[in-house]
Write a protein that binds this DNA or RNA. Structure first.
Lengths: 166, 166
DNA sequence: AACGAAAGGGTTATAGAATAACGTCTATTT
DNA sequence: AAATAGACGTTATTCTATAACCCTTTCGTT
């Protein structure tokens, strides 16, 4: 499990200029794919853009719906899933198992798993890179001789904004 | 998030008399359902028993298959899912989101979510009740004003037995 | 520039997981 | 014994994901 660079500010729950997020994600993706020698095709980039449309995890079939509308009935499930697989493998998005949905990664660069706080009201997901959690997991595992290779940490609750509103 | 009693020994990965696990789980379930005034019907008990057949998370359709064989083609998906929902609500089993599967709870008594170490080789899942992990999560959430209501913590890797074997 | 290999993606079909909606039966209560 | 609510059977459908096959595009090589 590689160490992650700390995330600057968890913007997901807070009003912000989201086009910045999208632009940043897309240009980072370009750079990373160039560096890795893999191809960020138009389709893959479009899927990444759709995933980044908001900070809410997006279902594969939601993406499919948009693509189908755009391209006039081209696009079947494998089209979307292949693009998502590519983005996952290259650490550009994450899959949220508890939602069967996908969300953009905000410190991309290599395949890894994150830790997420998911608001049950506004549905935003924010990715943590808190080593204390990983450390606690690692420690608990080590105590019984278990070798950690991957983690799924998805916390549901109320974000600060929605808590205020309620 | 209620505090959990510590688990004695994580037996899942270790050879042991598994019929003890099953018997214990079933009799505890009887006691709990009696105390709560809910009905542990024959079907629900059978499903619980099937889930406890091993420490490996079991898919709903695996359960369905067994029931269908037994009862000669009775049993459709809703039959199984209703039983599973009942067992979840009463804290007798857990759902493993990353596997779409269900596993017996080893400290039942009320609906709650656990933390799991899942061996990618032998597929056993052991439930942790490590407060350090919950504490770290709680702390990280609190730092950004997020109110935790539920958690999905599923760690994949190699258990000590399988690590030795490899 | 032409070729061949490999990757990308279209297409059809199917597998796997879960729920909706409705009817019937059976406990339990009164 | 009637009323009622819970449990379960049944059929159909939705949602999620992958298999298998084929054609096209891209890229490296000659």
């Amino acid at each position: 499990m590689p160490k992650l660079k700390p995330v600057k500010t968890p913007l997901a729950f807070v009003p912000h200029d989201h086009s910045q997020c999208v632009n940043h994600a897309l240009s980072e993706a370009d750079a990373i794919c160039a560096r890795e020698g893999v191809r960020l095709t138009a389709l893959r980039k479009r899927v990444l853009e759709l995933v980044w449309q908001s900070h809410k995890p997006l279902g594969a079939y939601d993406i499919l719906g948009v693509l189908a509308d755009e391209d006039g009935r081209r696009a079947a499930p494998p089209t979307v899933y292949r693009a998502l697989d590519f983005l996952l493998e290259n650490g550009l998005i994450h899959r949220i198992a508890s939602l069967n949905a996908f969300v953009g990664c905000n410190h991309p660069g290599s395949a890894h798993q994150g830790q997420f706080l998911i608001c049950r009201n506004c549905h935003a997901a924010i990715e943590l890179a808190q080593t204390p959690i990983s450390d606690a997991i690692e420690q608990s595992a080590e105590n019984i001789g278990f070798q950690v290779e991957g983690q799924t940490v998805e916390i549901v609750g109320l974000c600060s904004q929605c808590k205020k509103a309620a």
